[in-house]
Amino acid sequence: MRKITAGLFISLDGVIEDPQDWHFPYFNEEMGRAVEGQLGSADTLLLGRKTYEGFAQAWPDREKAGGEDAGFAVKLGDARKIVVSRQELDLTWRNSEQLQGDLVEAVTALKNEPGTSDIGMSGSVSVVRQLLEADLLDELHLLVHPIAMRKGARLFEDADTPLPLKLISSETFTTGVVHLVYRLDTDAPTGDYETAKANLSQSDG
């Protein structure tokens, strides 16, 4: 089964809205390697409409410009791009198609297609939330920036039940950004105050 990875820029207080307004001061070579490692190694991209439109406006021009990021732009252009939207879309970027049918069913089928390369996601927060809930997202890469935005949409919305996650790996960059990789924890720990109190007693002893 193919693996789906999603990458998000996020502030210390959980804001993911308009990262272009606050994350660039923290973008260095370490972050560049993390982004390219997560997204550039995928041969298929799964994107929400807004993310796709932003990418389609920027990356083809960067590829034509031939600058330092042209190589990454070529990788994105060559990848198969599947766009999640209920609207009828005019897909102008090469190798682009619109996801058909139910999201969970379609993504399940996509994961079961032959191949060993990852399916990469960037942004596309509403899709990320749905795939996490359905246990279809294998890795959630959060690039946590040392800044509290104090306004804007957050990654996790209010809900009646918690969503336990398991930390897979972590790395701290020289900028103070922390790269955290999570997956859904289907075997989350349980306990109460009595459990915590017992552990405190053991640490004292």
Rank of each mutant, 00 (worst) to 15 (best):
S169W: 09
A6R: 01
Q98K: 15
G66Q: 06
V125K: 02
L137H: 01
L140C: 06
A153N: 13
P25C: 09
S96T: 08
V144N: 04
D204E: 14
R86A: 11
L140V: 03
S201Q: 14
L46D: 08
G37I: 06
D187Q: 15
A58W: 12
F72W: 10
I147E: 02
S96C: 04
K75W: 01
G71F: 00
L137Y: 02
E139W: 02
W93P: 02
A109H: 15
L167P: 03
D160A: 14
G67P: 04
Q20G: 14
V144P: 04
L12Q: 08
V128F: 02
D61P: 00
L142I: 03
D13I: 08
V74Q: 12
E194I: 01
S85W: 03
Q202L: 13
T175N: 06
I10S: 04
D160I: 01
A79T: 03
R154H: 06
Q202R: 15
Q20A: 15
E53M: 08
D192Q: 08
Q38F: 04
R2S: 06
G48A: 09
G101D: 11
V177H: 03
A153Y: 07
L155Q: 07
L167T: 10
K166P: 04
F72H: 10
L180C: 13
I16Q: 06
D21V: 07
S201F: 05
L184N: 12
S85N: 02
L103G: 09
Y182G: 05
T190V: 10
M121I: 15
I147L: 14
L142E: 01
R183G: 11
T92V: 07
R150N: 12
L91K: 03
D69L: 05
Q100V: 14
L180K: 03
A159N: 11
T116K: 15
T161M: 11
T92P: 00
P162N: 05
L167C: 10
H23E: 14
A56G: 03
L137N: 01
R94S: 14
P146G: 04
G7R: 07
K166G: 09
D158N: 13
D69K: 06
D118S: 15
R94H: 10
D158I: 06
E88F: 00
L39D: 05
D158Y: 07
P164H: 06
E29V: 09
D158H: 12
N95W: 07
A73N: 01
H141T: 01
D21Y: 05
A106V: 08
